[in-house]
Design a binder for these strands. Structure first.
Lengths: 348, 348
DNA sequence: CTGTTAGCGCCTTCAG
DNA sequence: CTGAAGGCGCTAACAG
């Protein structure tokens, strides 16, 4: 493994000059630059990354760390795509970590810090605990960008967190959820259940907020027994939650899955139970993953700008690195009506 | 940012001692160890990763790099899960890179090398070019593990590659594909099309081999016009390919998608065209992603041990690091019959 | 424009 | 068991 010193010696110049051509310094004569470049090639010289960044004040690793919770959710994959493409555009590389628990996220965050990535983006909806963990990064001086629900965090009783030092990309979903639930109500649905998966269930969740608002405006009482948690955001959980709903049988005619995977799993359970969607039960999801347009029946859902979120997270990180002021952005969501929702049974 | 020297000074010991406790050397008295640990905590000391690995002969970064092509394919996500869990078990962390092109893969591989990961696993089916790129890693002395088709590479005319220095996890799919196609033939299907997505189409592809073998044994002529490529392994491509198949109308009654995403997209196109699966057309996939059991109708497919592949890739890397001999492994696949395949129309 | 000289923060011999 | 000294490969001031 040739070193910078070897190159200098072989080229008959000083290490300083070699270092300069390595770092594209303009203060090198074209002749020497070419000479050095040639020698580097001959010796198959590879700069030592560790050594390079050891002596630098602000390390330039050319890498961003991106954390997502659950690679198995296509919605996350889409955010990663946005982040990766944007990073590439700026000459950065994305290191991805998939962590399922707060514990793991913390571990990976530490790995990123050690590796001195130039910024970290968290491209998944986080709960409070996770956010606090992530926020520590600020103190280490690493630019941070997170994706949050627009109305979050306002959980009563929860610790408020100050986002001053953190770039955020938020998406507004409460009003869209409200609109979606109003749509279900307009179709005659009175008892609308929620399959919440792994979501933290508190009044702060924009989806819950939208749901409650719609109910209230329609004069329908909020019944918390209609909310089903399942512990994870997977198809399987959606499937099981629907089985539970069916077993309980509370006259529910519509179900709002907090993500599309949950909703798709729910539809499967319905199918196996011999029930039709939407004739017997309406199903609505959240995220609008690609798959949702291709399942049968296609899924009515709320579209979240996943690609854009990933992209803007990186955009903001790049901004911070270039000493631009930290910014906060809010993207919209929209309701996508497809075939999994219809008139409530008997409401013709 | 406190340094090792600061800790030594504050604790009244030498840097050597601090370094020793940092590296869990047994040659430190319990008293000093505790003292140093305490001081470290007080000073919030964080060892400098770059400095640590600079002076070491064999760097211990505690990280593996994993490359996948397309995070948007749940099959890949599953392999990543296997890899991540296995790595965690051994105290390693996984850095993931999602690259779509050989070009990108190369870039990421270089990033991994620079970062001195302790091993690299490629957890996607690769084509020849990509493999050659990846193989360069060997020359840099970084342990490498790749996932390959069992019969690959044997493409006629293609450069043979020597896998001696590379740990491999292969999966046997030709015979399973053959069995699957035989099943379709037994159901009365004579013209069976293939939606190949982005696969390299050559005789070496085990899936193609299995397909041709089955046809031959049944005395059905191989017609290459029945093979539809689409350029990518996505739902969208499956959807479009099926539209193409429908437009051509060659009396095709069954379609074999080279991955489940392709098959699911194809089913959607059928649905929109007013055709029923499997009554009008049988559909079969490959991979057995979780979703396949939940779409409607559920998808008949070939199960690939995705989790196990990811897991074993890391297992082998760990083995190489521990100076065990490089190994080659072959996992099996199996045919999963569900509801998307049935009797050929008119063959009752 | 170029060469020289200190370190960067840590590990790793060595003596003791 | 402990301390002291000498780099690891490179960048970053400096002088010239």
């Amino acid at each position: 493994m040739a070193t910078l010193r070897d190159v200098a010696k072989a080229a008959g110049v000083s290490v300083g000059t070699v270092s300069r051509v390595l770092n594209d310094s303009p203060n090198v004569s074209e002749a020497k630059r070419e000479l050095v470049l040639k020698v580097m090639k001959e010796l198959d010289y590879q700069p030592n990354f560790m050594a390079q960044n050891l002596g630098r004040k602000r390390s330039q690793t050319g890498e961003f760390g991106v954390v997502i919770t659950g690679i198995d959710n296509p919605a996350n994959a889409e955010m990663v795509r946005g982040a990766t493409e944007e990073a590439t555009k700026h000459g950065y590389t994305v290191m991805l970590c998939t962590a399922w628990t707060t514990q793991e996220i913390k571990r990976y965050l530490e790995a990123f810090i050690r590796r001195q990535v130039e910024g970290v983006a968290v491209a998944s909806y986080m709960d409070q605990r996770t956010l606090l963990t992530v926020a520590e990064l600020q103190t280490r001086g690493i630019p941070l960008a997170v994706c949050i629900d627009a109305e979050w965090p306002v959980a009563k009783g929860g610790k408020e967190h100050n986002f001053d030092g953190i770039a955020t990309v938020a998406f507004e979903s409460a009003s869209t959820c409200e609109q979606a639930v109003q749509y279900l109500i307009a179709l005659g649905h009175q008892r609308i259940a929620i399959i919440a998966g792994n979501a933290e269930l508190n009044e702060a969740d924009p989806r819950v907020m939208g749901y409650k608002n719609a109910l209230q405006k329609a004069g329908i009482a909020y019944d918390r027994r209609l909310i089903f948690r399942g512990g994870s955001d997977t198809i399987m959980t959606g499937y099981r939650s629907m089985q539970e709903i069916l077993a309980r049988g509370r006259g529910i005619s519509a179900v709002f899955g907090f993500n599309d995977l949950l909703a798709i799993g729910a539809m499967r359970a319905l199918h196996e139970a011999g029930l039709r969607v939407p004739e017997d039960m309406s199903i609505m999801g959240f995220d609008n993953i690609l798959m949702s347009g291709y399942v049968n029946p296609s899924l009515t859902t709320i579209n979240v700008p996943k690609y854009e979120i990933g992209r803007d997270l990186i955009k903001q990180l790049v901004g911070v690195i270039n000493d631009e002021p930290i910014s906060h952005e809010c993207l919209g969501t929209n309701f996508v009506v497809r075939q999994s929702t219809g008139l409530a049974p008997g409401s013709v």
